[in-house]
Design a binder for these strands. Sequence first.
DNA 1: CGAAGTTTTGACACGGATCAAGTGAGGTGG
DNA 2: CCACCTCACTTGATCCGTGTCAAAACTTCG
Lengths: 224, 224
Amino acid sequence: MPNSVRTFADDEHVWREGDRAFHCAIVMSGFLVGQKIVGGRNQILSVHVPGDMPDLHMLHLLHMDHDLCSAGPSTIAFVPHTFLNHLLVDSPTLTHAFWRKTLVDAAICRQAVANLGSRDALARVAHFFCELAARLEVVGLLHEDQFRLPFTQQNLADVCGLSTVHINRTVQELRRCGLIEWKAGVVTLFHRDELACVADFTPEYLHLSEGKRPEIHPLPVDAF
Amino acid sequence: MPNSVRTFADDEHVWREGDRAFHCAIVMSGFLVGQKIVGGRNQILSVHVPGDMPDLHMLHLLHMDHDLCSAGPSTIAFVPHTFLNHLLVDSPTLTHAFWRKTLVDAAICRQAVANLGSRDALARVAHFFCELAARLEVVGLLHEDQFRLPFTQQNLADVCGLSTVHINRTVQELRRCGLIEWKAGVVTLFHRDELACVADFTPEYLHLSEGKRPEIHPLPVDAF
DNA sequence: CGAAGTTTTGACACGGATCAAGTGAGGTGG
DNA sequence: CCACCTCACTTGATCCGTGTCAAAACTTCG
């Protein structure tokens, strides 16, 4: 694919709200977050890990409705929309794959709504770690329940809709319970099952292990 | 389109979490909500108005990750996936339109994250009314800033992640300020601009008035 | 070594939850 | 047509989770 790669420092903007994008970003390394100032606070709407295409939706929408910003240093590849559009015209399969990717992002977003609307601070933070671990595992960035996370506690506060002070106390509680460690930008999960229990986390919404999309004329079930 | 129409009473389930769907629902009248029990509470993740296709994502995902449920009586049309898939194979334009629809739903979901994460009760409720009015206006169900809403205050509480008691007080405050009226299942917005101000509502994220998707070989800009 | 940013701690304030009781309004049966 | 029941809405009192403010300890880096 034709592409140009660019590196971003911590807290550098890839797109801003209102921007019109002519390229799709692909996270090669590091983390990107979708965010927006609302009610005087910065609210992180989505977290994107390597392999994600955080602005795939811009293929069909005219203007960004939030900022896209690096959290920690990251390297991003940009592919022209024109190229992708030609690709998609020729390949229904690829179209479905891309579409599906945006649908999984939407499912993750729905889960965030559930998280913010109905869980207390401890469960929210625990859920964040569980989800991130699950997603990083898929792309091979989780090693022995351990992963790099170049976030400040402020970032985590912006994800969880909490104050930094309270995030700090909540993270300490998770540490005290022996569930996680987080220092020098590295997170370790000590008891993933217990953490998942605290978080009320189940990974189904990530739609990870679902079989491939069936052919349009489905095969008999026992063909699988 | 081949379709079967069914009516649902208040609080009847269309799909449940884990279900596999072989038809797409289209809301003909009434309201559907996507919801999920989380942390002992019922959290409404999305609200669907007539014209919406609340489970369009099930064309590509295997299992529902939340319940779909009627709020108030509603009539729903069901179209077989097999039919839609054939339609989409033949029409890239329609594929883009459907894809785009799921992307707008995702944008609305992101806004819900912002809402729950960063706004206080008053702004959340006000935002809900603003958004719903804007969406109903598009489908011609808003008449003189007035629309039918067959919700209980409990439903609204589930949308906003608040208790019924507090929803009640918040709605009363909006009434006291002369911003809304809500009785007998009919909502009236008295000062939409002021309400939008309280809610910090801007409709861009609904991506309503954006021009149509340009052709893949774009025309010169002054062609519009 | 100093400066700036991040994490930690404590004291206190407040928004919203919870609990409990009371008021309606619509639906049903006698 | 009225008595009753149920469910939604309303109100008041109290409690708790989280926010805010302010300062101290620690880190990172120039």
